[in-house]
């Protein structure tokens, strides 16, 4: 809804904080999503996402949410679907060239970003939308991507270790393991993971 969407932009700092708490939770739940299967979770999560974000942001379910980088103003509400800033047709009153009754989504975005802690993310060049992801859950995608990043970081460290101590690894493979560990084999890792989530979150993407 237009009024709700505008309200959210006016309170973008608060919603940024909400998402800052929400995203680590999504990533923390990665083992849960994996256990049930990301594929099976897709429909119910997408359903919830569609309704919650639909109410708050007029979300169009592009599946590649960038709200944290666009001042909490959804770029898919721009009639030209611009993902990188306003076009050259904004009216004198800051309204949209195509829909004169609507405030330009990107004028709002820059205002929203100016209130946010991570507002400068608006200057990052965003890629074109992958239309084949339309309708799918962005939340699950974030969880998968972040979890994958963490795994990759861990693997890189393990590989470095295995290379530095290659003779030991040859004689005693368990000393510098490389194979994927089952979740149950790393009881301590789980606890560490939940803290490392925050560092990932704060890294500018």
């Amino acid at each position: 809804m237009y009024t709700v969407r505008r309200f959210v932009v006016r309170h973008s700092r608060f919603f940024e904080w909400v998402y800052e708490c929400f995203e680590p939770m999504l990533v923390f739940l990665d083992p849960v999503w994996s256990r049930f299967g990301y594929n099976r979770m897709e429909r119910p999560v997408a359903f919830a996402e569609r309704h919650i974000k639909g109410l708050l942001f007029d979300c169009q379910m592009c599946g590649q949410c960038v709200l944290s980088s666009t001042g909490m103003s959804c770029p898919m509400n721009c009639p030209k679907n611009l993902r990188n800033g306003p076009c050259g047709g904004v009216r004198e009153n800051g309204h949209c060239e195509v829909k004169p009754a609507m405030k330009c989504v990107w004028v709002d975005a820059w205002e929203g970003a100016s209130r946010m802690k991570g507002g400068d993310k608006i200057s990052i060049v965003q890629p074109p939308v992958d239309r084949s992801l339309e309708g799918s859950s962005s939340w699950l995608r974030v969880a998968r991507e972040r979890a994958e990043e963490k795994r990759a970081t861990r693997d890189a460290a393990r590989e470095a270790m295995a290379e530095a101590f290659s003779e030991a690894r040859e004689e005693e493979p368990a000393a510098a393991p490389l194979a994927t560990e089952p979740p149950n084999a790393q009881p301590m890792q789980e606890a560490e993971e939940s803290t490392s989530v925050l560092t990932v979150e704060k890294t500018p993407s």
Binding site: K80, L82, N84, C87, G88, G89, V98, V125, P128
Partner: peptide, 27 residues
């Protein structure tokens, strides 16, 4: 980016906007 189709002589056309000017530049 281009003007919206609505201001032109064939306003019934489908607007594409697959890229925006900035993602087009990077491409």
């Amino acid at each position: 980016t281009g003007d919206g189709v609505g201001v032109g002589d064939q306003p019934g056309a489908k607007p594409v906007f697959d890229f925006d000017s900035i993602s087009l530049l990077r491409t």
